[in-house]
Design a protein around this nucleic acid. Structure first.
Lengths: 208, 208, 208, 208
DNA sequence: TATGAATGAGAATTCATTCAT
DNA sequence: AATGAATGAATTCTCATTCAT
């Protein structure tokens, strides 16, 4: 059952990983000792629930991204326009900087060749979720704008997806790069991105 | 001096790192023993030229990206249109998948919190190069299209830079994701990205 | 009381140890988790009956060897000749390869310095049984052949005992070494050993 | 080359294992920390010469037994009678209680199912030495007494080998069992065993 | 200058034992 | 009485770095 709750120790472990990550820890150098100390459980206990360190970290990342995405998807479905949808994603990222970071880290990890990466790929494969649900979410948005998008040539669909993804990554990178500057007003950037996404989709439709 | 040649042992070390990375090694788990063995030098010798492992890896990444960028910049200056410029970047990425990987890895490393990351950030700061020159290159392209762009509001400049960067990242991610599919024809994707970049810049100019 | 039955959980535990040993497990690396899982009882339950792991393993070994020996002793008493007695022991070892193994393992454990060894020695001391009853059995056989053997010089008695024990060990080692060869016919070996034991005892008597 | 010297750190490690064993340590519970501390080398250093703990312990055992056997074999060849040969073996065992223990432990380890056992078996297989040379030595002794013994039926040869081995094991066990008693005079036992071995060989020859 | 043998701090993982239920 | 989740001490092994040659 989807709604099945995580065992409390598992939840604590995931939380610990996310917290440590938010405090600036490098996921690749996280130690089991650190994680379990933060989770408030014994080192041995973690091994009752996970079979190795990679499973703890990849699991935390997967769980966090998956549940944020699930939640975000619901809310996107209630938005009318493309602009509002994209805006919702960006606002959400900004509000939950934690999640933003998680998302960025997950993308990052998916592209390096670490042991955590293998584990995460494996989880995605097993759960038959397309890469961390994000792609599903984008696919859904595209379908709303361009009905019948599933019959487009593969390359074109691919382009649209990548285009929207790149906007999101772009905003995430922006947030990441201005993290320390208190003065910056991200609303201008957000607006530019949303408007621009709509333009691109329009252009695309016109050309077809 | 810019043209100063690298000491041969340093060059070997950098090359070794790049080769190992290309063969699929995770940069975070590379060992000094592996690097020096591949470089054909003694473990102790490496410490005559570098003060720690991070310096070897970050140095290799920095050097590789910097020299590819320098080369690419020259060639971009000779292109007339924005379309051609963007296309040149993408073609280059595809041709030198090595460099693409280096670029992706560098971006990636810049965003995690590993020791290598700190070193790389430090190098960028010291050399006063904006993030691995890529940003400089993009800045140059923008200036060509929108003269006087240096006087635009910070947020707008930022947007344009991010927008172009996101296109490049987008293509890199695309290449990465189709790496194994032999059949895929990337020229369609490349064309779409180039055309689209031009559109966006046009729209931006119109709105001003 | 001798006839007192073992508590069922104790019996299960002993059986589990013996089974695992027969399946090729190294007694020194057996874990409590393995033993209790096989015994079908909870890990905590085992500690209601034993005070530590060594007690479980040494106990199993002791119990198994003791009960086989007790049984064997009865049957030896009914044999007339020395030849038949020795033959009975060897035939029994071969029939119950399990017990042979137990016997060999017990001898083995008695001679290493592991924690299990200490425990087993302690048990033997406490129960005032000479080394796992085997020695008692051999002493009995000698007494039958050489009445008054208890008054012989210690060294001579010791020699006779060791001589017979060494024949048994010799056969056990033989069985162990041909374990995998299907073709081997052990009856020749058995016959040789029995005949030879009789010879030796005869010689000994003549010399006195 | 047979005479090739062991690297000094390897020698120290072997010596450390043997010393610890002689001081009563259980080979299965020896730790790398203990071994290297005793050997006077760093923990990491051991791993430059051995690939795991088992290799250290099995190697020590193998080396010790092999070199004692080699030495003993030379001296046996110079003895005239069977009695003297067997006596030499027993005297040697008693004089070098270390070696006796090594021999017993090696036989013991060969019969349990520990990781050390596997390693030792593997070493024996690789070096193509029959089980630690002991069997070769016994074979040699038999051949001297019963020329043409190599053409005897397998079972009979097997019997003779086992018979002599069991005498040796018998004496080893005797020494082990009286270890603590100061008063005991082992010469009687030794004499009995030697005489008896000669008798058995004689009987065997007569029966043929 | 170049080397690689030596090192020990530190990491992951295991498992006997306890104790609250 | 029976349990098994929780634990942390202890173990093996790795690897960046040093330093004598």
């Amino acid at each position: 059952m989807e709604g099945m709750e995580l065992a409390p120790k598992v939840k604590n472990t995931y939380q610990a990983v996310i917290e440590l990550m938010m405090e600036g820890a490098d996921l690749n150098s996280l130690t089991v000792a650190e994680i379990t100390a933060r989770a408030g459980i014994g080192k041995g206990t973690a091994y009752e629930y996970f079979s190795n360190k990679e499973e703890m970290i990849a699991g935390a990342l997967f769980y966090e991204v998956e549940s944020s995405c699930r939640d975000l998807c619901m809310r996107i479905k209630q938005q009318e326009s493309l602009y509002e949808k994209v805006n919702l994603i960006l606002v959400d990222m900004e509000k939950h900087i934690t999640k933003t970071n998680c998302f960025l880290r997950a993308v990052q990890i998916l592209m390096d060749n670490s042991a955590i990466s293998s584990k995460l790929h494996e989880m995605i494969r097993e759960k038959k979720t397309s890469e961390i649900l994000i792609m599903d979410m984008i696919g859904m948005i595209i379908e709303d704008e361009i009905p019948d998008s599933y019959n487009m040539p593969k390359e074109k669909r691919s382009y649209l997806t990548m285009m929207i993804l790149s906007k999101i990554v772009c905003f995430a990178m922006y947030l990441f790069s201005v993290k320390e500057e208190v003065t910056s007003d991200s609303s201008i950037m957000r607006e530019l991105i949303c408007k621009n996404t709509c333009h691109e989709i329009d252009n695309f439709k016109k050309e077809e």
